[in-house]
C-alpha cells in the first residue's frame, strides 16, 4: 500500500456543520438578570419593610431562587437541555407518570386531611409540613420508579452507544437526566401545592396562623429532598441494565439512608457515658431526615442545605463514574 504522510488536523477538512454556539446566552442572561432583581428586592425589603412577612421569608426565597438560577445555567448548556427535553417528553408520554402522580396526590392527601383536623379548619402551615413530611417517605418508593429507566434503558437497548459517541460529555448526560428527573418529581408534588394555596386563601381569623416562614423553608427542604432522591435513583439506574433491578437498588439505598438517619441517632442516645450524646449529635448532623426536620421548623439552616446539595453532587459524580465504567470493563 502506498504510504502517505500522516494527516494532520489541518490537512483534514473539518466538519462543515455550523454549530449554534450562543444557545446558552439567553439562559445565562435570565439567571444573571433574575439574580440582580432578587438582590435588589432583598435590599429594598430589608431597608423599607424590615418586619413584613415577605422579608422574613427572604432567606428561603433566596435559596429557591438559587436553585432556579442553577437550573437555568445548567439548562443553558445546550446539550444538557436537549437531553433533558427528550427525557421529559418520554416521561410525560408514559401513562405510568400520570398514574404515579395521581396515586401520589391521593395518598398524600391523607396526612393533609389529618393536619387540618379532618378538614375541620384550614391550616396551610401544618399541611405544608405534612406534605413535605409524607414526601420524605413516599418519595422513597416513587423516586426510584421515576428514575429507574434513565440510564438502565439506554444500556439495555444499546442507545447508550449512540449517546456516548455523539459529541456530549458524560456530565452532560448525567446532568440532563438528573434535571429531568428532578422536574418530574417536582411536577408530581406540585398539585399538592393547591391545598396550601387554597388553605391560605380560605383562612379565617379563627384558624391557626399562616406561617409563611415555615412554608417557604419547607419548600426549600422539599426541593433538596427531591433532588437528593433523584440523584440516588439516577446512580442506581447507572448501576444496572435492568430497570427493575435499578429501581430495587434505588429503593434499598434510599431506605437504608432513611433508616440509618432515624435509627442511628436513636441508638446512640441509648449509649451511656459521654460518648453517647456526642455520637448522637454527629449522627444527627449527617442524618438527612433530621436535616429535613430542621428545615420544617421554619429555620433556613445552611448546614442542612449544604448537606443535601453536597450529597446530591456526590451521587451525580458517582453516576458519571458509573457511566464511564464501560471504559474499564
Amino acid at each position: 500500500m502506498a504510504s502517505e504522510t500522516s494527516m494532520t488536523a489541518a490537512a483534514c477538512e473539518t466538519h462543515p456543520a455550523r454549530r449554534s454556539s450562543l444557545g446558552w446566552l439567553p439562559w445565562v442572561v435570565l439567571a444573571v438578570f433574575g439574580s440582580v432583581l432578587v438582590a435588589g428586592g432583598n435590599f429594598l425589603l430589608r431597608e423599607y419593610r424590615p418586619n413584613s412577612t415577605l422579608t422574613q421569608c427572604l432567606p428561603a426565597l433566596d435559596a429557591l431562587w438559587g436553585f432556579a438560577a442553577l437550573f437555568l445555567i445548567l439548562t443553558g448548556l445546550g446539550r444538557v437541555r436537549v437531553l433533558m427535553g427528550r427525557e421529559l417528553a418520554t416521561f410525560f408520554q408514559s401513562p405510568l407518570a400520570y398514574i404515579l402522580a395521581g396515586l401520589y396526590f391521593l395518598i398524600t392527601s391523607i396526612p393533609v386531611f389529618f393536619s387540618t383536623g379532618g378538614f375541620d379548619y384550614v391550616d396551610a402551615t401544618a399541611s405544608t409540613k405534612a406534605i413535605v413530611d409524607a414526601s420524605g417517605f413516599l418519595m422513597l418508593l416513587v423516586a426510584p420508579i421515576v428514575t429507574m429507566r434513565l440510564l438502565a434503558e439506554e444500556k439495555a437497548s444499546g442507545s447508550m452507544e449512540i449517546l456516548v459517541t455523539d459529541p456530549v460529555t458524560d456530565w452532560d448526560i448525567v446532568l440532563g437526566k438528573f434535571l429531568a428527573a428532578v422536574l418530574c418529581l417536582v411536577a408530581m408534588v406540585l398539585p399538592l401545592g393547591l391545598y396550601v394555596v387554597l388553605f391560605a386563601m380560605m383562612r379565617k381569623s379563627s384558624d391557626p396562623a399562616l406561617e409563611w416562614g415555615v412554608i417557604s423553608t419547607a419548600t426549600v427542604g422539599l426541593i433538596c429532598l427531591l433532588a437528593f432522591y433523584a440523584s440516588v435513583g439516577l446512580l442506581a439506574s447507572a448501576l444496572s441494565k435492568n430497570q427493575v433491578v435499578s429501581a430495587l437498588i434505588g429503593l434499598v439505598a434510599l431506605f437504608m439512608i432513611f433508616v440509618l438517619g432515624v435509627v442511628l441517632p436513636h441508638l446512640f442516645s441509648q449509649l451511656s457515658g459521654e460518648l453517647g450524646p456526642k455520637l448522637k449529635s454527629m449522627a444527627e448532623a449527617i442524618s438527612l431526615r433530621k436535616r429535613l426536620d430542621v428545615l420544617l421548623e421554619g429555620q433556613l439552616d445552611l448546614k442542612s442545605i449544604f448537606l443535601f446539595v453536597s450529597t446530591t453532587v456526590l451521587m451525580l459524580y458517582f453516576s458519571v463514574r458509573a457511566v464511564e465504567s464501560r471504559k474499564w470493563r
Binding site: R19, S20, G78, G85, P167
Partner: peptide, 17 residues
C-alpha cells in the same frame, strides 16, 4: 419518538442550529 423528532434530537445533540 417520531422519526422527525428523533432526527431533530440528534441534530441538536450534534449542535446544529
Amino acid at each position: 419518538l417520531r422519526v422527525n423528532e428523533y432526527l431533530s434530537y440528534r441534530a441538536r445533540l450534534k449542535g446544529l442550529g
